[in-house]
Nucleic acid binder design. Structure first.
Lengths: 206, 206
DNA sequence: GACAGGATAAACCGTTCGGTTCAGCCCGAT
DNA sequence: ATCGGGCTGAACCGAACGGTTTATCCTGTC
Protein backbone atom coordinates (compact mmCIF):
# COMPACT_ATOMS: atom_id res chain seq x y z
CA UNK A 1 0.00 0.00 0.00
CA UNK A 2 2.81 2.33 -0.92
CA UNK A 3 0.91 3.41 -4.01
CA UNK A 4 1.08 7.06 -3.03
CA UNK A 5 1.79 8.97 -6.23
CA UNK A 6 2.78 12.11 -4.32
CA UNK A 7 5.96 10.49 -3.01
CA UNK A 8 8.05 12.98 -4.99
CA UNK A 9 10.47 13.61 -2.16
CA UNK A 10 9.26 14.92 1.08
CA UNK A 11 5.69 14.60 2.21
CA UNK A 12 4.92 18.28 2.79
CA UNK A 13 5.52 19.65 -0.68
CA UNK A 14 1.84 20.06 -1.41
CA UNK A 15 1.21 21.76 1.91
CA UNK A 16 3.93 24.30 1.19
CA UNK A 17 2.54 25.14 -2.24
CA UNK A 18 -1.01 25.35 -0.90
CA UNK A 19 -0.08 27.60 1.98
CA UNK A 20 2.06 29.83 -0.21
CA UNK A 21 -0.73 30.12 -2.75
CA UNK A 22 -3.15 31.12 -0.03
CA UNK A 23 -0.92 33.83 1.42
CA UNK A 24 0.59 35.13 -1.82
CA UNK A 25 -2.80 35.53 -3.49
CA UNK A 26 -4.12 37.30 -0.42
CA UNK A 27 -1.17 39.56 0.41
CA UNK A 28 0.95 39.85 -2.72
CA UNK A 29 4.67 39.21 -2.86
CA UNK A 30 5.99 41.93 -0.55
CA UNK A 31 3.04 41.67 1.78
CA UNK A 32 3.47 37.94 2.33
CA UNK A 33 6.05 37.02 4.94
CA UNK A 34 7.74 33.65 4.83
CA UNK A 35 6.80 33.07 8.44
CA UNK A 36 3.14 33.63 7.59
CA UNK A 37 3.41 31.18 4.69
CA UNK A 38 5.03 28.52 6.84
CA UNK A 39 2.42 29.04 9.54
CA UNK A 40 -0.46 28.84 7.05
CA UNK A 41 1.05 25.75 5.43
CA UNK A 42 1.43 24.04 8.80
CA UNK A 43 5.11 23.55 8.12
CA UNK A 44 8.35 24.78 9.62
CA UNK A 45 10.39 27.43 7.88
CA UNK A 46 13.26 24.97 7.64
CA UNK A 47 11.10 22.55 5.69
CA UNK A 48 9.96 25.31 3.37
CA UNK A 49 13.53 26.31 2.63
CA UNK A 50 14.44 22.69 1.97
CA UNK A 51 12.09 22.76 -1.01
CA UNK A 52 12.76 26.25 -2.38
CA UNK A 53 16.02 28.18 -2.30
CA UNK A 54 14.32 31.52 -1.64
CA UNK A 55 11.00 33.35 -1.44
CA UNK A 56 11.10 34.38 -5.06
CA UNK A 57 11.41 30.81 -6.33
CA UNK A 58 8.45 29.79 -4.23
CA UNK A 59 6.46 32.71 -5.59
CA UNK A 60 7.22 31.73 -9.16
CA UNK A 61 6.40 28.09 -8.56
CA UNK A 62 3.06 29.00 -7.00
CA UNK A 63 1.96 31.49 -9.63
CA UNK A 64 3.14 29.29 -12.44
CA UNK A 65 0.81 26.61 -11.16
CA UNK A 66 -2.12 28.95 -10.61
CA UNK A 67 -1.75 30.59 -14.02
CA UNK A 68 -1.69 27.26 -15.83
CA UNK A 69 -4.68 26.15 -13.79
CA UNK A 70 -6.95 28.92 -15.03
CA UNK A 71 -9.00 27.35 -17.73
CA UNK A 72 -11.24 29.18 -20.10
CA UNK A 73 -13.88 26.50 -20.25
CA UNK A 74 -17.23 27.46 -21.74
CA UNK A 75 -16.22 25.94 -25.04
CA UNK A 76 -17.63 22.59 -23.98
CA UNK A 77 -21.09 23.97 -23.35
CA UNK A 78 -20.95 25.83 -26.63
CA UNK A 79 -20.62 22.68 -28.70
CA UNK A 80 -23.75 20.91 -27.51
CA UNK A 81 -25.93 24.01 -27.46
CA UNK A 82 -29.07 23.97 -29.58
CA UNK A 83 -28.44 27.19 -31.50
CA UNK A 84 -25.61 29.69 -31.88
CA UNK A 85 -27.21 32.55 -29.89
CA UNK A 86 -27.71 30.22 -26.94
CA UNK A 87 -24.13 29.12 -27.23
CA UNK A 88 -23.00 32.74 -27.24
CA UNK A 89 -25.09 33.42 -24.17
CA UNK A 90 -23.51 30.49 -22.37
CA UNK A 91 -20.02 31.60 -23.33
CA UNK A 92 -20.67 35.18 -22.25
CA UNK A 93 -22.06 34.07 -18.93
CA UNK A 94 -19.11 31.77 -18.34
CA UNK A 95 -16.62 34.52 -19.16
CA UNK A 96 -18.27 37.13 -16.97
CA UNK A 97 -18.74 34.72 -14.09
CA UNK A 98 -15.15 33.65 -14.37
CA UNK A 99 -13.89 37.24 -14.39
CA UNK A 100 -15.89 38.04 -11.28
CA UNK A 101 -14.89 34.94 -9.32
CA UNK A 102 -12.80 35.54 -6.26
CA UNK A 103 -10.22 32.93 -7.25
CA UNK A 104 -9.55 34.50 -10.62
CA UNK A 105 -9.62 38.03 -9.24
CA UNK A 106 -7.08 37.28 -6.56
CA UNK A 107 -4.71 35.97 -9.20
CA UNK A 108 -5.37 38.94 -11.44
CA UNK A 109 -4.74 41.42 -8.66
CA UNK A 110 -1.43 39.86 -7.75
CA UNK A 111 -0.29 39.66 -11.37
CA UNK A 112 -1.21 43.29 -11.99
CA UNK A 113 0.34 44.52 -8.78
CA UNK A 114 3.54 42.55 -9.27
CA UNK A 115 3.93 43.06 -13.02
CA UNK A 116 6.53 45.78 -12.55
CA UNK A 117 8.70 43.62 -10.31
CA UNK A 118 8.20 40.37 -12.27
CA UNK A 119 7.52 41.20 -15.93
CA UNK A 120 7.24 37.55 -16.98
CA UNK A 121 4.33 37.13 -14.60
CA UNK A 122 2.02 39.51 -16.45
CA UNK A 123 2.93 37.93 -19.75
CA UNK A 124 2.23 34.43 -18.46
CA UNK A 125 -1.14 35.42 -17.03
CA UNK A 126 -2.08 37.04 -20.31
CA UNK A 127 -1.08 34.01 -22.34
CA UNK A 128 -2.77 31.40 -20.18
CA UNK A 129 -5.85 33.58 -19.59
CA UNK A 130 -7.12 36.30 -21.95
CA UNK A 131 -5.05 35.20 -24.96
CA UNK A 132 -6.17 31.59 -24.59
CA UNK A 133 -9.78 32.73 -24.32
CA UNK A 134 -9.44 34.73 -27.52
CA UNK A 135 -7.98 31.75 -29.36
CA UNK A 136 -10.73 29.39 -28.22
CA UNK A 137 -13.43 31.88 -29.15
CA UNK A 138 -11.94 32.52 -32.58
CA UNK A 139 -11.81 28.76 -33.04
CA UNK A 140 -15.51 28.52 -32.25
CA UNK A 141 -16.28 31.25 -34.78
CA UNK A 142 -14.51 29.15 -37.40
CA UNK A 143 -16.76 26.16 -36.75
CA UNK A 144 -19.42 25.31 -39.38
CA UNK A 145 -22.29 26.03 -37.00
CA UNK A 146 -21.00 29.49 -36.18
CA UNK A 147 -20.09 30.27 -39.77
CA UNK A 148 -23.60 29.37 -40.85
CA UNK A 149 -25.35 31.55 -38.31
CA UNK A 150 -22.94 34.47 -38.17
CA UNK A 151 -21.59 36.88 -40.77
CA UNK A 152 -17.98 36.70 -39.66
CA UNK A 153 -15.13 37.15 -42.10
CA UNK A 154 -12.39 37.72 -39.52
CA UNK A 155 -12.87 35.33 -36.59
CA UNK A 156 -10.04 36.89 -34.60
CA UNK A 157 -11.51 40.38 -34.89
CA UNK A 158 -14.98 39.07 -34.01
CA UNK A 159 -13.60 37.25 -30.98
CA UNK A 160 -11.92 40.48 -29.91
CA UNK A 161 -15.22 42.33 -30.11
CA UNK A 162 -17.08 39.62 -28.22
CA UNK A 163 -14.52 39.64 -25.45
CA UNK A 164 -14.72 43.44 -25.25
CA UNK A 165 -18.47 43.18 -24.80
CA UNK A 166 -17.93 40.72 -21.96
CA UNK A 167 -15.52 43.08 -20.20
CA UNK A 168 -18.35 44.56 -18.19
CA UNK A 169 -18.43 47.22 -15.57
CA UNK A 170 -19.05 44.41 -13.08
CA UNK A 171 -15.51 43.22 -13.67
CA UNK A 172 -14.03 46.68 -13.10
CA UNK A 173 -16.01 47.07 -9.90
CA UNK A 174 -14.97 43.62 -8.73
CA UNK A 175 -11.30 44.27 -9.47
CA UNK A 176 -11.47 47.46 -7.42
CA UNK A 177 -13.39 45.84 -4.61
CA UNK A 178 -16.42 48.06 -5.09
CA UNK A 179 -18.95 45.22 -5.17
CA UNK A 180 -19.22 41.62 -4.02
CA UNK A 181 -19.52 38.62 -6.29
CA UNK A 182 -22.63 39.20 -8.45
CA UNK A 183 -25.50 36.72 -8.54
CA UNK A 184 -26.51 34.70 -11.56
CA UNK A 185 -29.29 37.00 -12.71
CA UNK A 186 -27.01 40.02 -12.78
CA UNK A 187 -24.42 38.12 -14.78
CA UNK A 188 -27.07 36.81 -17.15
CA UNK A 189 -28.35 40.33 -17.81
CA UNK A 190 -24.88 41.61 -18.65
CA UNK A 191 -24.28 38.58 -20.87
CA UNK A 192 -27.58 39.17 -22.62
CA UNK A 193 -26.63 42.76 -23.40
CA UNK A 194 -23.29 41.63 -24.78
CA UNK A 195 -24.87 39.00 -27.04
CA UNK A 196 -27.53 41.42 -28.25
CA UNK A 197 -24.96 43.99 -29.38
CA UNK A 198 -22.80 41.29 -30.91
CA UNK A 199 -25.66 39.84 -32.93
CA UNK A 200 -26.79 43.31 -34.05
CA UNK A 201 -23.59 43.42 -36.04
CA UNK A 202 -22.72 39.78 -36.76
CA UNK A 203 -26.04 37.97 -37.12
CA UNK A 204 -26.45 36.75 -40.70
CA UNK A 205 -29.36 38.54 -42.37
CA UNK A 206 -31.65 36.30 -44.40
CA UNK B 1 7.98 89.83 -3.57
CA UNK B 2 6.56 87.47 -1.02
CA UNK B 3 3.66 86.67 -3.34
CA UNK B 4 4.44 82.98 -3.28
CA UNK B 5 1.09 81.19 -3.11
CA UNK B 6 2.71 77.95 -1.99
CA UNK B 7 3.61 79.40 1.42
CA UNK B 8 1.23 76.95 3.09
CA UNK B 9 3.63 76.08 5.86
CA UNK B 10 6.99 74.75 5.04
CA UNK B 11 8.54 75.08 1.65
CA UNK B 12 9.09 71.40 0.88
CA UNK B 13 5.50 70.18 1.01
CA UNK B 14 5.23 69.91 -2.75
CA UNK B 15 8.52 68.08 -3.01
CA UNK B 16 7.37 65.51 -0.47
CA UNK B 17 4.12 64.85 -2.31
CA UNK B 18 5.87 64.67 -5.67
CA UNK B 19 8.52 62.28 -4.47
CA UNK B 20 6.00 60.10 -2.67
CA UNK B 21 3.81 59.99 -5.76
CA UNK B 22 6.77 58.93 -7.86
CA UNK B 23 7.84 56.12 -5.55
CA UNK B 24 4.38 54.90 -4.49
CA UNK B 25 3.14 54.66 -8.07
CA UNK B 26 6.26 52.80 -9.06
CA UNK B 27 6.64 50.43 -6.10
CA UNK B 28 3.27 50.22 -4.40
CA UNK B 29 2.70 50.76 -0.69
CA UNK B 30 4.71 47.91 0.81
CA UNK B 31 7.42 48.15 -1.82
CA UNK B 32 8.03 51.84 -1.21
CA UNK B 33 10.34 52.57 1.71
CA UNK B 34 10.13 55.90 3.48
CA UNK B 35 13.86 56.34 3.02
CA UNK B 36 13.46 55.93 -0.74
CA UNK B 37 10.65 58.49 -0.77
CA UNK B 38 12.69 61.02 1.19
CA UNK B 39 15.67 60.44 -1.09
CA UNK B 40 13.57 60.82 -4.24
CA UNK B 41 11.90 63.94 -2.87
CA UNK B 42 15.25 65.49 -2.03
CA UNK B 43 14.13 65.90 1.57
CA UNK B 44 15.18 64.54 4.93
CA UNK B 45 13.09 61.93 6.67
CA UNK B 46 12.60 64.34 9.57
CA UNK B 47 11.03 66.89 7.24
CA UNK B 48 8.77 64.25 5.75
CA UNK B 49 7.56 63.19 9.17
CA UNK B 50 6.91 66.82 10.10
CA UNK B 51 4.24 66.93 7.41
CA UNK B 52 2.67 63.48 7.80
CA UNK B 53 2.26 61.47 10.98
CA UNK B 54 3.02 58.16 9.27
CA UNK B 55 3.58 56.39 5.97
CA UNK B 56 -0.09 55.51 5.57
CA UNK B 57 -1.25 59.13 5.85
CA UNK B 58 1.24 60.14 3.19
CA UNK B 59 0.02 57.32 0.97
CA UNK B 60 -3.58 58.42 1.31
CA UNK B 61 -2.73 62.07 0.68
CA UNK B 62 -0.83 61.18 -2.47
CA UNK B 63 -3.39 58.83 -3.95
CA UNK B 64 -6.24 61.11 -3.05
CA UNK B 65 -4.61 63.79 -5.15
CA UNK B 66 -3.78 61.52 -8.06
CA UNK B 67 -7.27 60.00 -8.15
CA UNK B 68 -8.94 63.39 -8.20
CA UNK B 69 -6.53 64.52 -10.88
CA UNK B 70 -7.59 61.87 -13.38
CA UNK B 71 -9.99 63.62 -15.67
CA UNK B 72 -12.10 61.96 -18.28
CA UNK B 73 -11.82 64.74 -20.82
CA UNK B 74 -12.90 63.91 -24.38
CA UNK B 75 -16.26 65.53 -23.73
CA UNK B 76 -14.93 68.90 -24.86
CA UNK B 77 -13.90 67.62 -28.26
CA UNK B 78 -17.21 65.87 -28.60
CA UNK B 79 -19.23 69.07 -28.42
CA UNK B 80 -17.59 70.91 -31.29
CA UNK B 81 -17.38 67.89 -33.58
CA UNK B 82 -19.08 68.10 -36.96
CA UNK B 83 -21.17 64.94 -36.66
CA UNK B 84 -21.98 62.37 -34.00
CA UNK B 85 -19.91 59.48 -35.45
CA UNK B 86 -16.83 61.73 -35.48
CA UNK B 87 -17.54 62.71 -31.92
CA UNK B 88 -17.81 59.06 -30.93
CA UNK B 89 -14.53 58.33 -32.66
CA UNK B 90 -12.85 61.13 -30.74
CA UNK B 91 -14.27 59.94 -27.47
CA UNK B 92 -13.25 56.35 -28.10
CA UNK B 93 -9.73 57.38 -29.02
CA UNK B 94 -9.44 59.54 -25.93
CA UNK B 95 -10.67 56.75 -23.68
CA UNK B 96 -8.38 54.11 -25.14
CA UNK B 97 -5.37 56.43 -25.15
CA UNK B 98 -6.08 57.38 -21.58
CA UNK B 99 -6.39 53.75 -20.48
CA UNK B 100 -3.06 52.90 -22.10
CA UNK B 101 -1.14 55.89 -20.75
CA UNK B 102 1.61 55.10 -18.33
CA UNK B 103 0.39 57.64 -15.78
CA UNK B 104 -3.08 56.20 -15.59
CA UNK B 105 -1.83 52.61 -15.63
CA UNK B 106 0.55 53.18 -12.75
CA UNK B 107 -2.33 54.53 -10.68
CA UNK B 108 -4.58 51.66 -11.71
CA UNK B 109 -1.97 49.05 -10.84
CA UNK B 110 -1.44 50.48 -7.38
CA UNK B 111 -5.16 50.79 -6.68
CA UNK B 112 -5.77 47.20 -7.80
CA UNK B 113 -2.81 45.83 -5.90
CA UNK B 114 -3.66 47.71 -2.71
CA UNK B 115 -7.45 47.33 -2.81
CA UNK B 116 -7.39 44.54 -0.25
CA UNK B 117 -5.35 46.55 2.24
CA UNK B 118 -7.13 49.89 1.61
CA UNK B 119 -10.69 49.22 0.45
CA UNK B 120 -11.57 52.92 0.15
CA UNK B 121 -8.83 53.31 -2.42
CA UNK B 122 -10.46 51.08 -5.02
CA UNK B 123 -13.80 52.75 -4.47
CA UNK B 124 -12.32 56.22 -4.88
CA UNK B 125 -10.51 55.28 -8.08
CA UNK B 126 -13.70 53.80 -9.47
CA UNK B 127 -15.74 56.88 -8.63
CA UNK B 128 -13.29 59.46 -9.96
CA UNK B 129 -12.41 57.35 -13.01
CA UNK B 130 -14.67 54.78 -14.65
CA UNK B 131 -17.88 55.91 -12.95
CA UNK B 132 -17.26 59.53 -13.88
CA UNK B 133 -16.56 58.51 -17.47
CA UNK B 134 -19.84 56.62 -17.59
CA UNK B 135 -21.75 59.62 -16.26
CA UNK B 136 -20.22 62.02 -18.76
CA UNK B 137 -20.88 59.66 -21.64
CA UNK B 138 -24.48 59.12 -20.62
CA UNK B 139 -24.84 62.89 -20.40
CA UNK B 140 -23.61 63.22 -23.96
CA UNK B 141 -26.09 60.61 -25.15
CA UNK B 142 -28.83 62.75 -23.64
CA UNK B 143 -27.79 65.80 -25.70
CA UNK B 144 -30.04 66.82 -28.60
CA UNK B 145 -27.37 66.12 -31.21
CA UNK B 146 -26.82 62.58 -29.96
CA UNK B 147 -30.53 61.91 -29.52
CA UNK B 148 -31.12 62.97 -33.10
CA UNK B 149 -28.44 60.76 -34.60
CA UNK B 150 -28.72 57.75 -32.32
CA UNK B 151 -31.53 55.40 -31.39
CA UNK B 152 -30.89 55.42 -27.67
CA UNK B 153 -33.69 54.96 -25.17
CA UNK B 154 -31.48 54.21 -22.13
CA UNK B 155 -28.44 56.50 -22.14
CA UNK B 156 -26.87 54.74 -19.16
CA UNK B 157 -27.09 51.33 -20.78
CA UNK B 158 -25.75 52.72 -24.06
CA UNK B 159 -22.85 54.37 -22.25
CA UNK B 160 -22.12 51.06 -20.56
CA UNK B 161 -21.97 49.32 -23.94
CA UNK B 162 -19.77 52.02 -25.44
CA UNK B 163 -17.33 51.80 -22.56
CA UNK B 164 -17.24 48.02 -22.87
CA UNK B 165 -16.32 48.38 -26.54
CA UNK B 166 -13.49 50.71 -25.55
CA UNK B 167 -12.12 48.21 -23.02
CA UNK B 168 -9.83 46.75 -25.66
CA UNK B 169 -7.29 44.01 -25.52
CA UNK B 170 -4.66 46.73 -25.71
CA UNK B 171 -5.66 47.82 -22.23
CA UNK B 172 -5.38 44.30 -20.82
CA UNK B 173 -1.98 43.85 -22.40
CA UNK B 174 -0.86 47.22 -21.09
CA UNK B 175 -2.06 46.47 -17.58
CA UNK B 176 -0.12 43.22 -17.60
CA UNK B 177 2.98 44.80 -19.09
CA UNK B 178 2.80 42.69 -22.24
CA UNK B 179 3.14 45.62 -24.66
CA UNK B 180 4.44 49.19 -24.64
CA UNK B 181 2.30 52.28 -25.09
CA UNK B 182 0.55 51.88 -28.48
CA UNK B 183 0.91 54.46 -31.24
CA UNK B 184 -1.92 56.63 -32.53
CA UNK B 185 -2.77 54.47 -35.52
CA UNK B 186 -3.22 51.38 -33.37
CA UNK B 187 -5.47 53.26 -30.99
CA UNK B 188 -7.44 54.74 -33.88
CA UNK B 189 -8.04 51.30 -35.36
CA UNK B 190 -9.36 49.94 -32.06
CA UNK B 191 -11.54 53.02 -31.63
CA UNK B 192 -12.88 52.61 -35.15
CA UNK B 193 -13.88 49.02 -34.44
CA UNK B 194 -15.63 50.09 -31.26
CA UNK B 195 -17.61 52.85 -33.00
CA UNK B 196 -18.55 50.57 -35.88
CA UNK B 197 -20.07 47.97 -33.59
CA UNK B 198 -21.76 50.65 -31.52
CA UNK B 199 -23.35 52.27 -34.56
CA UNK B 200 -24.43 48.89 -35.95
CA UNK B 201 -26.81 48.75 -33.02
CA UNK B 202 -27.52 52.38 -32.12
CA UNK B 203 -27.39 54.32 -35.40
CA UNK B 204 -30.82 55.71 -36.21
CA UNK B 205 -32.13 54.12 -39.40
CA UNK B 206 -33.78 56.56 -41.78
C1' DG C 1 23.58 90.97 14.48
C1' DA C 2 20.31 88.66 17.03
C1' DC C 3 16.38 85.85 16.59
C1' DA C 4 13.02 82.21 15.04
C1' DG C 5 11.76 78.48 12.75
C1' DG C 6 12.06 75.28 8.77
C1' DA C 7 15.26 71.98 7.16
C1' DT C 8 19.19 69.08 7.59
C1' DA C 9 22.28 64.66 8.26
C1' DA C 10 23.01 61.04 11.04
C1' DA C 11 22.54 58.32 14.77
C1' DC C 12 19.39 55.65 17.01
C1' DC C 13 15.14 52.80 18.56
C1' DG C 14 12.46 48.51 18.43
C1' DT C 15 10.59 45.44 15.18
C1' DT C 16 10.32 42.55 11.36
C1' DC C 17 12.20 40.74 7.44
C1' DG C 18 14.47 36.70 4.57
C1' DG C 19 17.29 33.15 5.47
C1' DT C 20 20.35 29.72 8.35
C1' DT C 21 21.48 26.56 11.83
C1' DC C 22 20.95 22.90 15.05
C1' DA C 23 19.55 19.51 18.34
C1' DG C 24 16.09 16.42 18.58
C1' DC C 25 11.59 13.96 17.19
C1' DC C 26 8.99 10.81 14.29
C1' DC C 27 8.51 6.78 11.69
C1' DG C 28 9.08 3.36 8.08
C1' DA C 29 12.64 0.06 6.44
C1' DT C 30 15.97 -3.28 7.51
C1' DA D 1 16.88 -2.54 17.92
C1' DT D 2 18.76 0.30 14.98
C1' DC D 3 19.27 3.36 11.40
C1' DG D 4 18.40 7.41 8.42
C1' DG D 5 15.98 10.89 6.30
C1' DG D 6 12.06 14.14 6.55
C1' DC D 7 10.53 17.26 9.67
C1' DT D 8 10.30 20.20 13.77
C1' DG D 9 10.60 24.38 16.79
C1' DA D 10 13.28 27.72 18.29
C1' DA D 11 17.16 30.37 18.39
C1' DC D 12 19.86 33.14 15.67
C1' DC D 13 21.93 36.30 11.92
C1' DG D 14 22.54 40.72 9.37
C1' DA D 15 19.88 43.84 6.99
C1' DA D 16 16.17 46.71 6.30
C1' DC D 17 12.05 48.49 7.88
C1' DG D 18 9.05 52.64 10.05
C1' DG D 19 9.67 56.11 13.05
C1' DT D 20 12.17 59.42 16.52
C1' DT D 21 15.62 62.36 18.21
C1' DT D 22 19.37 65.59 18.41
C1' DA D 23 22.54 68.98 17.35
C1' DT D 24 23.36 71.89 13.71
C1' DC D 25 22.60 74.77 9.65
C1' DC D 26 20.33 78.08 6.72
C1' DT D 27 17.61 82.06 5.68
C1' DG D 28 14.53 85.81 5.96
C1' DT D 29 12.94 89.59 9.46
C1' DC D 30 13.27 93.25 12.44
Amino acid sequence: MNADPQIKKGRKYGQVIAGAREVFLREGFEGASVDAIARDAGVSKATLYSYFPDKESLFHAVLNGVCNLQRTEGLGVALNATDVPSALRHIARAMITNQCSESNLALFRVCVGETQRFPELGRQFYETGPAEGLRQLAGYFRSPAAQEALDIVDPDAAADIFVRLCRTNLMIQRVLGVIDEPDEETVAAEAEAAVEIFLARFARRD
